[in-house]
Design a protein around this nucleic acid. Structure first.
Length: 114
DNA sequence: TTTGTGACCGTAA
DNA sequence: ATTACGGCCACAA
């Protein structure tokens, strides 16, 4: 696999998201040293059936929406996990801007990877 | 080889 | 607030 390094970087970066916080696919890609490749993050998660050490539920779209179809199994699970961590989810999205969260991740995780 | 398909994103109507 | 479009790129058909 040519991408196993990239995937490892991605999963590693996702592990750095603190509980109660969220990050977008694009942010993860950037932090993992893969600028512009948000789709790869999604593909990585889809293909590597993530287990708890990888907090996949803290990864959202850039606009704060959960990436799953509302009502789907995965959607419900993600929503539940977020709420358990105290993250507000209303109308299928986390109000990032309203909480000033989106940019915080760059501050919280500066020194990175692997 | 080409085409379609995503757990996506930024910009511009 | 939406929609459209172009970028993005590994994968499968």
């Amino acid at each position: 696999m040519p991408n196993e390094r990239a995937y490892a970087q991605i999963l590693h970066t996702i592990r750095l998201i603190p509980a109660g916080n969220v990050a977008s696919y694009g942010q993860i890609a950037d932090l993992a040293g893969l600028p512009g490749r948000a789709r790869m993050v999604g593909r990585c998660l889809r293909e590597s059936s993530p287990v708890p050490p990888v907090p996949w539920h803290r990864v959202l779209r850039a606009d704060g929406k959960l990436a799953f179809p509302p009502g789907s199994d995965s959607y419900q699970q993600q929503r539940t996990r977020l709420v358990e961590e105290g993250v507000t989810v209303m109308n299928h999205r986390v109000p990032l801007k309203e909480f000033g969260w989106s940019p915080d991740l760059y501050t919280l995780m500066h020194e990175i990877p692997y």
